[in-house]
């Protein structure tokens, strides 16, 4: 049971990919991509978790108190910002593709066959 929480990461990754592959709408596909991304959040935060430890903020607890791993939290924060903006770029591409072709289904968008 001690490892079951980690498996959330594998589940989110797989289920997000399922969404990406079966999606009928480009915007939906991009949202599914962010489900895949949340898998990495779950993995990083679970790895940094310490049972019974405090949050890594030493404003009201003395320095040296056992705290959870701040590095993975910082990595996750980086990851959030990176992907939010990449999603914005993807959505801009999807909006434009819809304006130019009137299509949003990724299966119809394969106009550059090859």
């Amino acid at each position: 049971m001690t490892h079951l929480a980690y498996c959330l990461a594998a589940w989110l990754f797989a289920v997000g990919l399922y969404g990406v592959v079966t999606s009928r709408n480009m915007v939906h596909l991009i949202i599914c991509l962010s489900v895949v991304q949340s898998s990495t959040y779950a993995l990083l935060l679970a790895i940094g978790y310490r049972a019974g430890a405090a949050a890594p903020v030493f404003a009201d607890i003395p320095s040296g108190t056992p705290a959870v791993d701040p590095v993975v939290q910082a990595l996750m924060l980086t990851d959030v910002v990176v992907e939010v903006t990449i999603m914005a770029l993807l959505l801009a591409l999807a909006v434009l593709a819809y304006e130019r072709t009137g299509k949003l289904d990724p299966n119809d968008l394969g106009m550059i066959r090859g």
């Binding site: 890594p56 030493f58 404003a59 320095s63 705290a67 701040p70 590095v71 939290q73 924060l77």
Partner: peptide, 22 residues
Amino acid sequence: GDLVNSLTVPERHITDAVTAVN
């Protein structure tokens, strides 16, 4: 992460360890 937790206040005077890392 443990190293950062032990160094952030004494060496950087930053009480939020996540900000110290970032």
